[in-house]
Computed example of a mutant assay.
Amino acid sequence: MSDAATSQPLPLDLTGHVADLTAALMDIESVSGREAAIADAVEAALRALPHLSVLRDGDAIVARTNLGRAERVVLAGHLDTVPLPTSPGSRGTVPSSWDGQTLYGRGATDMKGGVAVQLALAAELSAPQRDVTYVFYDHEEVEASLSGLGRLVEHHRGLLTDASFAILLEPTDGAVEGGCNGTMRFRVTTTGKAAHSARAWMGENAIHAAAPILARLAEHTPQTLSVEGLDYRESLNAVRIHGGIAGNVIPDRCEVEVNFRFAPSRSVEQAEAYVRHLLQGFDVERTDAAAGARPGLDAPAAASFVAAVGAEAKPKYGWTDVARFSELGIPAVNFGPGDPLLAHSDNEHVSRQAVADCLDALRRWLA
């Protein structure tokens, strides 16, 4: 067991300004796979609140009010971040730093501002008008099979499925983003014959054979599909290529990794068929897939939330865990502080006001 997991958790002040709580969470480094310290701190803070029941599974925590309200909603957020930047002079690192009213550091937008809002609400709202399930989970920024939310669904499904609506506090710049695109990855392989590069005519170059794959992807025009009134823009791209073993060897194998972000009106099977048709004639292997989520904004709780926020709903182009709630039959939206375009950047930051505004909007709706 790591020292982080065995040491006393850092105390979190849930009653101060929510932006200061954001900074405190950012100062606990929590790259995916190393969430124990922040999970310890969050668990300790929640167990100190007598109006909540608290359960921990690995480095995921569920806290619930149990007031017998007619409706229950979920507020969810992940505790992990992507790795820290290595660029000299980067401001998206740990610990956090203030520049006036702007907070810099890893996780500022993705998504410790949202987690801070969850914790502040959990402390403040002992008697909300809707029962609330607060979910904090690990391993969001890595492959789906490791997801802490997925593990909670598997181990404690009943703690989630009694909700009628879910809000994932991913950064949306204060907008309501309904549903999300699906995502899938493929490995497209070409083969050839190895030879000394001085006698290239004796071999067959597998990298050259991959050129038509790249050409088809470059010439492809992505579609925009309307789903329940929201327009989801798709994208299909080569994201990685690998081939060759040495500078003087004609490569006999090349692999192109392809990522397809597809509208939630397509099933995984339909999206896969679309890519296979485009890359017909090549060896295509699907390596990963996650369905999208339809907006579901016509659900009563969703409609009341959008009205309370007072902003026009938008589509979510990236994949988020709203899709996991959608699979459970729970309509879900993304709503959180910070510009999503800054997520994972070396310049990641969020304003003090943005975090406070997100807290105020959810407080009005819940209280």
Rank of each mutant, 00 (worst) to 15 (best):
D3T: 13
A4I: 00
T6C: 10
L12W: 05
D13F: 08
G16V: 12
T22I: 08
I28T: 02
S30F: 05
A41H: 09
V42H: 01
E43A: 13
A45H: 03
L52M: 10
R56L: 09
D59H: 14
N66C: 12
N66V: 11
L67R: 15
L79N: 06
P83G: 07
P83S: 08
P83M: 03
P83C: 04
L84C: 11
P85Y: 05
S90E: 02
P95N: 07
T102I: 13
Y104T: 07
G105N: 07
A108S: 14
T109V: 15
D110E: 14
Q118V: 08
L119V: 07
L125F: 05
L125E: 01
S126C: 12
P128I: 06
P128C: 09
Q129Y: 01
R130Q: 12
V132G: 05
Y134K: 00
D138G: 06
H139R: 14
L146D: 13
S147I: 07
L159T: 09
F186N: 00
R187P: 01
T191M: 09
A195M: 09
H196Y: 09
S197R: 09
R199P: 00
A200F: 13
W201S: 13
W201F: 15
W201N: 13
M202F: 09
M202G: 09
N205Y: 08
N205Q: 08
A206I: 07
I207E: 00
A209F: 01
I213F: 03
L214M: 12
L214G: 06
A215T: 14
P222D: 09
Q223H: 12
T224C: 11
T224H: 04
S226P: 08
L230I: 02
L230Y: 02
Y232C: 04
S235K: 09
A238Y: 02
V239Y: 07
I241L: 09
I241N: 00
H242E: 15
I245E: 12
I245A: 13
A246S: 15
N248M: 05
E255Y: 00
V258K: 06
F260W: 10
R261N: 03
S265Y: 05
V268R: 09
V268E: 13
E269S: 14
Q280A: 15
G281V: 08
D283I: 11
E285T: 14
G292Y: 01
A293Q: 05
A301E: 12
A302V: 08
A303D: 11
V309A: 12
A323N: 11
R324F: 11
A332S: 13
F335K: 00
G336N: 03
D339G: 05
N347E: 15
E348L: 10
H349P: 05
S351K: 05
A354V: 04
L359P: 01
L359M: 03
L362M: 14
W365G: 08
L366I: 12
A367K: 07
